[in-house]
């Protein structure tokens, strides 16, 4: 090994040690634990081996897990496309305005505010009998909705808040992408008579595609792990996070409850691996999309 090589590895050492301790070992341990029944009060190596029964249980007997899986799926499949589309619109609208800094700041505020706090504020806005949103609805002659209190609308309420809070980040990324598009492209388009919608479709969108894909796919990975909003918006009002009747139960929330409320570490580990496989699948799609989107560094 040359001296230079040794130096390089030395610079890498802290990161490598960290990944060995906090990543490789825990990931393998989690896999081991997913076949055990363990409450963390006994030594882990003595925990009884239960084979595949944790996996079997969550997919066959455990109705809450399947509910959490479908809720999370709906959450990801709705919030991410909606938020992406909305942020494209906003980025295009803000771009080129005279006071664009002001608008960006406005949309930036929710993205840096603690999600728990956002969730709690929205919980109040959603209150059925004296909430702000219902009184606005009433002012327009519309009937009140039960929002978080009704299993039919609870998840929708949370998705609205999530889009509200997340759209700013996406908008800023796309805005940065817009700024990278050379003005000459637009000038050339103007000479060709392309304006408005056509200009967007033939110039802006293709050049913005890497940024859009980035927003979309990272949003997806985050959405599958949604936790903060659910805890903040459902626990104080309904006592138990994920309610009413598990209508807002998500994967990570249920894992959290299984592990740290029911002390069922084996089952929670099995769920974590299921989530891992799902997110991995999405990430592989991500890789492919990114390649096609022209980003080679990934």
């Amino acid at each position: 090994m040359s001296k230079r090589t040794r130096t390089a590895w030395l610079f890498l050492l802290p990161v490598l040690i960290f990944y060995a301790i906090f990543l490789v070992f825990p990931v393998l341990s989690s896999f081991f634990l997913s076949f055990r029944e363990w409450n963390m009060l006994t030594p882990p190596l003595q925990a009884p081996n239960v084979g595949w029964s944790n996996y079997k249980y969550i997919f066959t007997e455990d109705r809450v897990f399947l509910k959490a899986l479908s809720n999370t799926f709906i959450y990801a499949m709705v919030t991410v496309p909606v938020s992406t589309a909305l942020s494209i619109l906003l980025a295009v609208l803000v771009y080129g305005r005279r006071r664009d800094g002001f608008w960006r700041l406005l949309f930036f505020l929710p993205t840096i505010t603690t999600p728990v706090a956002i969730g709690m504020v929205w919980m109040y806005l959603y209150r059925p009998n004296y909430g702000l949103i219902n009184s606005i609805l009433n002012a327009f002659g519309l009937h009140s909705l039960d929002w978080l209190n009704n299993p039919a609308t609870a998840l929708l309420s949370i998705m609205i808040t999530a889009v509200w809070a997340g759209v700013g980040t996406n908008m800023l990324i796309l805005y940065a992408g817009l700024k990278d598009i050379p003005e000459t492209y637009y000038e050339a388009a103007a000479i060709d008579g392309a304006h408005g919608w056509r200009r967007f479709w033939y110039i802006t969108f293709p050049l913005l595609k890497p940024a859009i894909l980035f927003v979309f796919v990272t949003g997806m990975i985050a959405a599958w792990q949604v936790f903060d909003f659910i805890v903040a918006m459902t626990a104080p009002a309904l006592g138990k996070a994920g309610g009413p009747i598990n209508s807002t139960m998500t994967m990570v929330l249920y894992m959290y409850q299984t592990a740290f409320e029911y002390l069922n570490m084996g089952r929670a580990s099995a769920m974590a691996y299921v989530l891992f496989v799902i997110v991995l699948g999405i990430s592989l799609v991500q890789l492919r999309l990114f390649r096609r989107g022209g980003i080679e560094s990934y």
Binding site: Y19, F22, A268, F276, L280
Partner: peptide, 21 residues
């Protein structure tokens, strides 16, 4: 590439062992 790949791991997969560690 390995370091980049870790970004795809859901954090819950480490939580229980890390807590015990």
């Amino acid at each position: 590439k390995g370091i980049l790949a870790t970004m795809m791991l859901p954090s819950f997969i480490f939580i229980i062992p890390v807590y015990y560690m």
